[in-house]
């Protein structure tokens, strides 16, 4: 059975059907793309998968657990982590602390251990520091651990956001437009990073992206949304040659 199984998912806002009949099946270790025109409902789908919105209908099963309409807290613990289209870092916290917050439910200890600074506190903090530094190392930003997150240049903020998501040791990572605002070379670098994350951490990745070079170069399977409905599905080759996708999304090949 697939890691993530979504069937017939739908939601409407004030009478407007934002997403309907959305289905998705992501195997573990897979790189999966979700594309479509602006306003097609891709981020809405992400918001339902992460518990930010409660779907009106449909089911979301993660690794055998029904997470439909559950709280973000529950879903995070169940194993889904995400990044945001408009980077949402904890801006005034240090880079290291951003990653440590990501481990909130992975390396837990009670408030009083922290207040009393006992052995539990010291051991857990040490463990977190080590794990966080290792993660930052993977993304090449370990030397910035002490910086305030908002001081990082844009590209590194994107990386840090992925680091923070990975800190919760998810089974499935959702990336919302990870390449937005990056130039072609940075995008290529990001592509390698994403692939590395999948390989090193052995997790499934579902991503929304407009940069077709990026999507086509990395995703094994793609679903295309338009007006909240799936209009195409398949491997990159099939999808990019689909006339409906070209008409609605890619546009003619005139450049």
């Amino acid at each position: 059975m697939a890691l993530l199984e979504v069937t017939n998912l739908g939601i409407s806002f004030g009478g407007l059907q934002a997403v309907s009949g959305f289905r998705l099946s992501v195997d573990s270790g897979h790189l999966y793309g979700l594309i479509g025109p602006n306003g097609a409902g891709k981020t809405t789908a992400f918001n339902m998968l992460t518990g930010m919105y409660e779907p009106d209908e449909g089911k979301i099963i993660l690794d055998g657990v029904d997470i439909t309409g559950k709280s973000p807290e529950f879903i995070s613990k169940a194993g889904i982590a995400r990044t945001f289209q408009n980077i949402r870092l904890f801006k005034r916290m240090s880079v290291l602390d951003n990653v440590k917050v990501g481990m909130h439910n992975k390396v837990p200890y009670g408030m009083w251990h922290g207040v009393l600074r006992d052995g539990v506190f010291r051991a857990k903090e040490k463990e977190m520091d080590q794990r966080a530094m290792n993660l930052l190392e993977v993304f090449g930003i370990a030397d910035k651990a002490g910086h305030v997150a908002s001081q990082l240049p844009y590209g590194e903020q994107r990386k840090l956001e992925i680091c923070r998501a990975l800190a919760s040791e998810p089974k499935l990572l959702l990336l919302d437009e990870p390449a937005a605002g990056m130039n072609p070379n940075e995008t290529i670098e990001l592509r390698e990073t994403v692939r590395k994350v999948r390989d090193d951490f052995g997790i499934a990745i579902l991503l929304i992206e407009h940069d077709m070079k990026f999507v086509m170069g990395i995703c094994e399977e793609i679903t295309v949304l338009e007006y909240g409905k799936i209009i195409a599905h398949g491997d990159p080759e099939t999808v990019s040659n689909d006339p409906r996708v070209i008409a609605a999304y890619l546009g003619g090949d005139d450049d």
Partner: peptide, 14 residues
Amino acid sequence: DEPSMGLSPLLVKE
């Protein structure tokens, strides 16, 4: 400043 950011390929062209 970055008028094409976050736009679909079709809209970027437009």
